[in-house]
Computed example of a mutant assay.
Amino acid sequence: MLAAGMLVAGSLATGGCISVNAPDKPIVIELNINIQQEVVYRLAADADKTIEKNPEIF
């Protein structure tokens, strides 16, 4: 009975250990961001042409 109690107590003592270690290499986060201004540029050019063709609308 004593041996069983020591076995349970020993397993509880070692089962609760948590080890947290920092990684050896730095964490790398890769972000692929692609911003295109082509659409705005085309719209601006289109608007300029429309204003030149129809100056009375403004």
Rank of each mutant, 00 (worst) to 15 (best):
F58M: 11
K25T: 06
I18F: 03
I57Q: 02
N21F: 01
T50C: 05
D46P: 00
I18S: 14
I18V: 14
P55E: 10
L31P: 03
A4K: 06
V8P: 00
L12S: 06
G15K: 03
N21W: 02
S11H: 05
V8C: 11
L12V: 04
Q37D: 12
D24G: 00
V20Q: 09
E56H: 14
M1K: 05
A9N: 11
G16R: 14
G15P: 00
I27V: 07
A47I: 12
P23Y: 06
T14Y: 12
G5S: 06
S11E: 14
K25N: 12
R42H: 04
G16E: 12
I35E: 14
T14P: 01
V8I: 15
E56V: 01
A3N: 05
G5R: 08
L2Q: 10
A45V: 06
L12D: 02
M6K: 07
M6R: 08
F58A: 12
T50I: 13
C17D: 14
V8S: 06
A45M: 15
L43P: 05
T50W: 03
A45D: 12
P26C: 05
G16W: 08
S19V: 14
N32C: 02
P26Q: 13
I33F: 06
N21L: 02
M6E: 07
A3I: 07
K49N: 06
A4C: 08
